[in-house]
Simulated assay, not measured.
Amino acid sequence: MAKQVKRKPTSKRRPAKKKTFFSGKMIGFLITVLILLLIGITTYHYRDALAYYFSFRSKHKIENSNATKVEEARIFQVLKRHENMVYGLDVSQYQGQIEWENAKIVEDTFQLQFVFIRATAGKDKLDSRFHENWKNAKAANFICGAYHYYRPNENSLLQAENFIKHVRLKKGDFPPVLDIENLPKVQSMDSLKVGLKRWLTKVENHYKVKPIIYSGEKYFNDFLEDEFKGYTFWIANYNFFVEDCKDHWTFWQFTEKGSVPGINGNVDLNIYNGTPKMMNYLRIQ
């Protein structure tokens, strides 16, 4: 009888790993390259702003600004890109007492020529520093405009009367400004639009000039653009990636983190979308 030979069990072969073009190391390398490329593009794009900050900002202690370095770079970049236009600011009682004679230059380079000053809010609020700011800004040769902060849930005609009661506009001033940026809590959007139109009409009839409307870009796009054609718009947009004033923005409030000598803390900065000569036609004649 033949002797049986025990066969060794065959070992199971592990399936060979498929070679992939993008290995983990390769993906990591590509991500690093993309990040460095993005940093390089950003650095080149903000080269003027960065050069400014490495020179002026490194030599001067800036105490008033709470903006990050990125925000500061954008502010400089936006101002630099609009050198043929007109710069300004807007203030209220929250800026405290302002040294207007010193508040004429932003970023040590760009001259501020106009200011919008909050006058009233709602049906009975007077900004506690309106008359002081109005008098002193004019004494410092700023072109001035007064704005009313609209409260959607209060009577529109009473709000118009509140503004008219406290604001005296003269030749050379900007038209009155309606600031609308909040949604109503107890009324419909249609009712809000009716109220805004009543305010605008009453104020226009009193001052004999069409008011300016201030709002954020989204508010403008969603609620104001179609209903209020023919008005001059002052639009707020602080988006980091927006560096150019759009055609339909007569005024652009591009930051709330501006630092201006003579003002404690941050302040809103604005650009008029045109030349000084063009802006003069907008003023009360």
Score class of each variant (00 low, 15 high):
A51W: 05
R283Y: 06
K8E: 07
G258N: 08
G230Q: 10
G28A: 13
A73H: 06
G145K: 04
A2F: 15
Q159S: 07
Y44P: 00
E217Q: 11
W234V: 00
Y281P: 00
F163V: 06
R198V: 11
F240S: 05
E83Q: 11
W199I: 02
V106H: 09
Q77K: 10
T255N: 11
V267P: 01
G230P: 04
Y94C: 08
N64E: 15
N205Q: 14
F142Q: 04
N162Q: 05
E227H: 14
H131I: 09
R151P: 00
L158P: 06
E107T: 03
A146C: 14
D247S: 10
G230S: 15
I212M: 06
R118F: 03
N237A: 07
S128K: 11
Q93S: 13
P15S: 10
N133P: 08
G24V: 04
S191A: 14
E154W: 04
V203S: 12
H166G: 00
E243F: 02
E107R: 15
E256P: 03
K8W: 05
K170A: 15
E154D: 12
S11P: 08
A146F: 04
R13K: 14
D108E: 13
K257D: 12
D124I: 03
T109S: 15
D244Y: 11
F174N: 00
T10E: 13
I98H: 08
R129G: 01
V167Q: 05
E161M: 12
E225Q: 12
K17W: 07
F114L: 04
R129Y: 11
V167S: 02
A160Q: 04
F114D: 03
N273I: 04
A160S: 06
K123M: 14
E243W: 07
Q77L: 04
K135C: 00
V186F: 15
L157P: 00
Y87N: 14
D108F: 15
F130A: 00
K170L: 14
K246D: 07
D247R: 13
S188F: 05
E243L: 14
K8D: 04
L89S: 10
N141L: 07
G122P: 02
K8T: 07
V91Y: 02
L79I: 09
L34A: 13
M85C: 15
L79Y: 06
I117A: 08
F228Y: 02
D226F: 09
L126V: 10
I212Q: 03
K218Q: 13
K197N: 11
Y94N: 15
G195Q: 01
L183W: 09
S55G: 11
D108P: 06
G96T: 03
V115D: 00
I117M: 01
G195M: 01
T20N: 08
T10S: 12
V33M: 08
W134T: 03
K165F: 10
V115G: 03
F22S: 07
A73K: 12
S215H: 10
P276N: 08
L36K: 08
S188E: 05
L169W: 10
V33I: 12
K257A: 15
A137S: 13
Q95F: 07
L196G: 00
N221M: 09
V267S: 05
K171W: 00
F22V: 10
F114V: 09
